[in-house]
Each structure stands twice: as structure tokens, then as C-alpha cells.
Amino acid sequence: MSFTALVTDKGEDGKVASRIAELDDAQLPDGNVLIGIDWAGFNYKDGMALAGIGGLVRAYPHIGGVDFAGRVIESTDERYHPGQAVVLTGWRVGEWHWGGFATRARVDADWLVPLPKQLSTRHAMVLGTAGLTAMLAVNRLKSEGIKPSDGDILVTGAGGGVGSMAVLLLARLGYKVHAMTGRAELADDLKALGASEVVGREVLTKSGKKLMATRWVGAVDSVGGAPLGELLKQIHGGGCVAAVGLAAGDAWDASVIPFILRGITLAGIDSVMQPFEARTAAWDRLSALFGFGVYERMVREVGLADLPELSSEILAGKIKGRVIVSPKS
């Protein structure tokens, strides 16, 4: 059988380019489950892979797409059967292994999660890696004892996929959420998701101080870099910051002072290599908690041919919410 894919390749000049191509099933990588893909997500990592930056892709030609949802076509693993709806996020798929920017994929059964019955495959990709990551971050804040009655929660990079979903999830759980974004035009969208206040990036500008007046009891941080260092200085004693991204960089100037004088926690959230049990628990929670009708204003549908151009937009921080990809359109 043949299938359609967005194939990314590197030329002799070292430049990376992508094109739509028809491939044969025999060209798919090894795996024990063959999936017909209904929807894929478009994430920051996907933008990096299509631009050929970050060293994410190990070998060319390559098919990107770090998350996708669809139905099983064939399986030699007894856990999965033809017609079953599944979702895949992480496990270096779309980086080291061919991913979701195609109408078919072959993967390891251990990487899959059966889709909760309440979710369609489109719902699954509205959520995707962003939704899973946001849910894991919210769960971590809760496990650290951060309650809605304790105070305000900051979400940085609130206009992006992870950030916007964290705003919605926290608000639905009763937290008072401050949404930080550099795009003032998104204020109405973020308030519709449940943000009680929308703040600009200036709340985390460099202060030169070791500690600052406390402002938030917790945070979901998707930007990293220098803003994270400033954020840690403003967290209440015993508070927690769940770090999920590095849109502003992977390093910051900081000290141990907030940790040893205020007892705060910096919790890293890894959504790529999460074990099966944690994934299924998060997807079940998302299926019950997420408000798809409210979030639809943050969703954009595209086809495979649109992705190369969109890569520059997502890397420049110009994408709102989630972009979902119909590989058949």
C-alpha cells in the first residue's frame, strides 16, 4: 500500500527542505503496529525539525510529527486491534523515528495509548503533546500541595499550546490564573479560557535582586531562560514552579536564595518519556476535565503542504494555541 507524507530531506549543501511525496508501506520503519493517521499536531519541536535546527533529526530522509492520533490498521501486539483509536506523543517519534506528518505510521506498541472513549481523534490532537504536558504540570502543582485557596498561579507563554491549555485546566480546577504573554491581542482569548488577569512579559524583567516581593504561589513556566530566574524570586514560600519549556532559552542567572530562604520547588516536567500508567492517567483526566468548546477559538486546522511555511511562525512565537494537521487534506 502507498501513503502520503511530508518528507524532509537534507541536500548536499546541508540545507533542509520538505516536499509532499507518495511512499510505500515497505519504506516505513520497524514497529509492531501500523496506524492510519487521522490528525497530527504541530509543535515547537516540529518547527525545529522542519527548519533543520536543534539536532533533533538523526537521519534523512525524515517524516516529522511528534504527536498523532488515528486508528490501528494492523498489529502483532495483542494489546491493540484493527479499528482501535490510539494516540501517540513523545518517545522521540518525529525526531529519531518517523512521525505523524503522513497518512500512515508504523510504531512500537509500547509508545501508544488507547484513546479514552470520550475523545475523538481530533480531540486527541487538539490536546496532543501540549495537553499532556499541561496536565502533567498541573498534576505536579497539586502533588506539591498547591491548592486554589493558596493564592494566584502564573502561566508564562500563555498564548502557546501548553500555556493556553494550562490556563484552561487550572481555571477549571478553581485556581486564580495570571496569564503572561507578549501578545496583548490575545487577552480576550486568554480570559475566555479562564484567566483572571492577563499580564505582559515586563512582570519578569531582569531585576538584579536575589529576592523580590512574593506574587504567585505557583507557576507553569513554558519559556525558561531569564524570565524563569526572575519568576523564582517572586514565588511564595513553599510554592512550586513546573518547568515545561525553553522558548526564551535554556539558561538563566539565578541563586539558591529562593530555595533555601523560601523553600520553593522547581519541578521539571518531562512529557517525552513518561511511563504508560502516567500517560493513561493524564489522558483520562484530560477527557473528563478539558473544555473543547471553549478552546476551539485557539485551534487552527492545516494540511501537510502548509507546514514548511508555518515552521517559521511557530519558531518566532507567532502561533496561537494549537495547530492540528489533517494529513489527508
Rank of each mutant, 00 (worst) to 15 (best):
residue 12 E to A: 14
residue 13 D to Q: 07
residue 16 V to P: 08
residue 17 A to P: 01
residue 24 D to S: 15
residue 28 L to A: 09
residue 39 W to N: 00
residue 56 L to K: 11
residue 58 R to D: 11
residue 64 G to P: 14
residue 64 G to D: 09
residue 65 G to R: 04
residue 74 E to H: 13
residue 79 R to A: 14
residue 84 Q to S: 10
residue 86 V to M: 03
residue 87 V to I: 15
residue 87 V to K: 00
residue 93 V to F: 06
residue 97 H to N: 11
residue 103 T to W: 07
residue 105 A to V: 14
residue 106 R to W: 08
residue 119 L to H: 06
residue 119 L to G: 09
residue 126 V to S: 02
residue 129 T to V: 12
residue 130 A to R: 02
residue 132 L to W: 07
residue 132 L to G: 03
residue 141 L to H: 05
residue 141 L to S: 09
residue 148 P to I: 12
residue 153 I to N: 01
residue 154 L to Q: 03
residue 160 G to W: 03
residue 163 G to S: 04
residue 166 A to P: 07
residue 173 L to V: 06
residue 178 H to F: 13
residue 178 H to G: 00
residue 180 M to K: 04
residue 182 G to P: 06
residue 187 A to W: 05
residue 190 L to I: 13
residue 202 E to I: 06
residue 207 S to P: 10
residue 221 D to S: 08
residue 221 D to V: 11
residue 227 P to D: 06
residue 231 L to H: 04
residue 233 K to R: 14
residue 235 I to N: 01
residue 236 H to P: 02
residue 241 V to A: 14
residue 242 A to N: 01
residue 248 A to C: 11
residue 250 D to Y: 08
residue 252 W to P: 02
residue 256 V to W: 00
residue 260 I to Y: 15
residue 266 L to D: 06
residue 266 L to N: 09
residue 269 I to Q: 05
residue 270 D to Y: 08
residue 271 S to C: 13
residue 274 Q to H: 10
residue 274 Q to I: 13
residue 275 P to N: 13
residue 283 W to V: 01
residue 284 D to L: 04
residue 292 F to Q: 00
residue 303 G to A: 14
residue 305 A to S: 15
residue 309 E to P: 00
residue 316 A to P: 02
residue 320 K to N: 00
residue 323 V to L: 09
residue 323 V to F: 00
residue 328 K to M: 07
residue 328 K to I: 08
